[in-house]
């Protein structure tokens, strides 16, 4: 691993919050912990798992009618991987790794597309800093970016329930069994998670319309 990356990961290992006892994807969580501990075989495994970045970017770029060339898309991929590695210490295992990585792909791709759009309509009055801020504002208003941001802000245990329900399509009985909770408690947490999520999404919309 490059020296810069090692130092960054070491620093962030110190800062990372304690792992939640309710880790839904414990294999992925363990993998990330081994990467953070510097294990080479874990890095090999993670590199394989990050292979999902290519298909995700291609698929989303197509869905968004993007006009980026392959080289530009590869630059986005590079940025995604860099951000994922920088955020590894925050991974709690609430979502499987690919779903977690997906949110990075979505936001980086939208950022690149916004940048491209703004370059095309170059506004001479905006300096680079203002332009970057405008892009970040634009990004916050993207419903998917807002959604993933809001999901990421849920308590880890609630995230795990939401992900298990919508990503793995698990019935509440299975989710409860996996997390060692009662079914009614799991459903109540799910309801509360949706309430929090909706409130967060509305705050994002409020910021957008402000």
């Amino acid at each position: 691993m490059g020296n810069g990356t090692v130092e960054r990961l070491e620093l962030q290992r110190e800062l990372r919050p304690a792992a939640s006892p309710e880790v839904a994807h414990s294999d992925d969580f363990d993998l990330v912990q081994r990467v953070l501990a510097g294990e080479r075989s874990a890095r090999e495994q993670l590199a394989g798992r990050l292979g999902c970045v290519g298909p995700i970017l291609r698929s989303r770029h197509r869905a968004l009618n993007g006009r980026l060339g392959e080289d530009d898309l590869l630059d986005v991929a590079q940025e995604v991987v860099a951000r994922v590695l920088a955020k590894l210490p925050t991974y709690q295992g609430a979502a499987r790794l690919e779903v977690w990585v997906y949110s990075f792909c979505e936001s980086e791709l939208l950022r690149a597309l916004a940048r491209r759009r703004r370059q095309a309509q170059r506004n001479a009055e905006l300096d680079q800093v203002s332009e970057d801020l405008a892009i970040e504002d634009e990004l916050c208003s993207e419903p998917d970016v807002a959604l993933w941001g809001c999901v990421g802000r849920l308590p880890s245990a609630d995230q795990a329930i939401v992900q298990a329900r919508h990503d793995a399509d698990l019935p509440f009985q299975d989710i409860a069994a996996r997390l060692g909770q009662s079914v009614s408690f799991t459903k109540t947490r799910y309801y509360r998670a949706l309430v929090q999520l909706r409130a967060c999404l509305d705050r994002s919309r409020g910021r957008r319309s402000a």
């Binding site: 691993m1 490059g2 990356t5 090692v6 990467v35 080479r40 890095r43 090999e44 993670l46 590199a47 394989g48 990050l50 292979g51 999902c52 970045v53 290519g54 298909p55 995700i56 970017l57 291609r58 698929s59 989303r60 869905a63 392959e70 898309l73 590869l74 991929a77 590079q78 991987v81 860099a82 590695l85 690919e98 779903v99 997906y102 792909c105 998917d144 990503d167």
Partner: peptide, 27 residues
Amino acid sequence: AVASALAEPAQAFDLDVQRVARRQLGL
């Protein structure tokens, strides 16, 4: 959208991305 993206058939571009990941992981 996640499920549909992850079901994409592999392309040469994905190998380039994989190489980027390996490079950033120091492999």
